[in-house]
Amino acid sequence: MLSDSAMFNNRYQRFILAAVVPVFIVYVIFMIFPIARSLYYSLFDWSGFTTNMEYIGLGNYAEMASDKLFASSVLNSLKYVAFGGVLIIGITLLFTYAITSYKSKKLKDFVQTILFVPNTISPVALALLWGFVLNTRWGLVNSSLKAIGLGTLARGWLGDEHIFGAALSLLVWIHVGFFIVVYLAGADRIPRSLYEAAELDGASDWKKFTTVTVPLLRDVIETSVVLWTISSFKIFGYIYAFGSGGCGSDPSPAIRNLAVHLYLTAFGKRTPINRLGYASAMAMILLVLVAMLVCVIRRLFRSVERIEY
């Protein structure tokens, strides 16, 4: 006869199994199976129009080594990770510093809402709006610069030379608004007693922020870095809509990340590349690259001393 504790364990295990199995099945169907299929397709030359697939082994992977557009899309993704990461985390921290120092809760909520609003708008609408703002001839930025006598600073923001910066500014604008909510939630968890102790030691607001808030936001910062790294490779709507020159043009190669380039290779817009097999190989590389980067980031953060409270 089973003891009460053994019965409980048995029942508990069955409950866990009942809870996990459906999720695991969903995960296998919607994650593992598509990944496995993509891996399979990546070994074929296949347009996706018919079931005719030609097995080419690692041919698609070999082709990538000499594909300039693929190389530039990987490089762009890495640039988004690095420059975007520094700007987004930096600006978000500065906003966190400013907003946490407000005494009025209403003001805090108001600023937070204003910053978050872009995240509630469709990426395509925002990307088009940003394109209008940066339009060379009649955009808000150049017009304003001219109006205040700084016309020499006006640039062709959507040209090859500046378009990466223009796209990055759009992504920074959107993501700062998102991460600020996460950072402020993290900052709100920090016990007041720590700030009071710092005040007793005569610490300034900035000192309190750098020695109390930032170290204790370590987990939040790590999560945001990981999220941003993944986004840099797979963010699609903003870049696709912003970088397109209109009239069916593909987004400029100067701003394409791997996800956008992959889509264009698989389906194209006006340019009917239609290489689903090759795009599947790119998807495999995307998966491996993101996994590697996330591992590196996690290791880096692990090497930083964790502060508990």
């Binding site: 060379t136 001839r137 062709g156 923001w157 959507l158 020159g245 209109g246 009239c247």
Partner: peptide, 14 residues
């Protein structure tokens, strides 16, 4: 002027 960064529909409007 500015054609290097000009995108549809700006040129046709000009």
């Amino acid at each position: 002027e500015g054609y290097e960064s000009s995108v549809y529909p700006a040129p046709q409007m000009d």
